[in-house]
Design a binder for these strands. Structure first.
Lengths: 210, 210
DNA sequence: AAGATATGTGAGCGGTGCTAACTTTGGCTT
DNA sequence: AAGCCAAAGTTAGCACCGCTCACATATCTT
């Protein structure tokens, strides 16, 4: 089935209705759900409405997803891909092993949380379904791996070194908490307000140089 | 295990004698919802089922709560009261101004997240409704205030000092991230596994002594 | 050309959020 | 004490949602 023309990579180049009946309905549903989650909150989304937005009947989604949670898992999976890509891109913009590279990873994380708070919360709130979703587990570990890589390069140690893992965990913990607090109390705690980059550099230095 | 139903609700507090038709249905509904959230996940709860557990019709809850989100807000409000009490109790178990007091605040936070992961996630995932709920905002600031108090005592500065606020924010960010990662990837990242108390002491020292 | 299979539709079942109209309860006024 | 009246509960019901089933149609394989 792969000898034909374009790949279904969600590029959405020109014609969304070139494949089977509808186009790549699966990708369009995920996009619709993502949008709904972002605008109406993680709970205010329904499969029916996503189908409506995609222009199909309310039963069509179930040809591509087993049930509602599986759709959410699809959204999370896609989001994790983008999150990891953003983190890697952030790291790649700075010299390997530099503190700046580590801080850039954290900044990508925070930026992601701020630009898509609904999806971000979903990613880390969907852990109920994680048990049966090794793919998500794997992608989560992949994201953590980016932090580990950065920390290892910075410390000039092997990524498998427990000390590296420990510091990476501390880094992630900090950045994760900062992201969550940031999107939770948006403009609150203004007295403690700080520039993200300075903050992340300070944190990275404190954790990787002790 | 005496079932001590002490609901510190804004309006009619504990009035066991009156009990109109049913008793304090409001408190019982909140308890039922809390239990449902903890066992079936934050999404797998329905007002109907909570009413069923409380032994009333499915319309009865709407005499006490405007809608579903308001019930959730009630659960969050009650949970925040307990969280703050736990944090204060943790701090009170150690000398004022000691690093141990600060670490104990963090430990209470982590323990709360671990013992009620569903409710914990709800507390910080319900921020969509926070805008119209100044009561929750206020209680959130109250919890933050406990951390600020601890940091201020430790640094021998005023709680209103920006530097204190900044450090308190860092502490909270760290503990919050640690809690979330902890309940998310329960047994994962085992290589980085650490004793909570040691971890929190290390963090507290790092943040409050630089 | 002819299945086989993937992808869509419409009808429909049970459950849910919420409202409306009604009944019961018990405190408060007189 | 009589009686009003608001609080607190009930049943009935609407609209929507998740999901399934039977069926229609488009594409792939042979």
């Amino acid at each position: 089935m792969s000898n034909d023309t374009s790949r279904t990579d969600g590029s959405a180049t020109v014609t969304p209705k070139s494949a089977y009946h509808h186009g790549d309905l699966r990708a369009q549903l995920i996009a619709a759900v993502r949008d709904l989650i972002e605008t109406r909150g993680p709970d205010g989304f329904s499969v029916a409405e996503a189908a409506r937005r995609a222009g199909v009947s309310s039963a069509a989604p179930y040809k591509h997803f087993k049930d509602r949670p599986e759709i959410l898992r699809g959204v999370v999976s896609e989001a994790m891909d983008r999150l990891r890509a953003a983190m890697e891109a952030g790291a790649a913009a700075h010299p390997v092993g530099s503190l700046e590279a580590v801080a850039a990873i954290g900044l990508a994380y925070v930026d992601f949380a701020r630009s898509e708070p609904g999806v971000f919360r979903l990613v880390f709130g969907l852990t109920e379904g994680h048990e049966n979703a090794p793919e998500l587990q794997q992608k989560g570990e992949g994201c953590f791996g980016v932090v580990v890589q950065g920390a290892a390069a910075c410390l000039n140690l092997s990524p498998s070194d427990p000390e590296v893992q420990r510091r990476a965990y501390m880094l992630w913990s900090f950045v994760h908490g900062h992201s969550f607090l940031h999107i939770d109390m948006k403009t609150k705690v203004t007295t403690a307000r700080i520039d993200d980059w300075d903050y992340l550099m300070t944190i990275s230095r404190a954790i990787l140089a002790s």
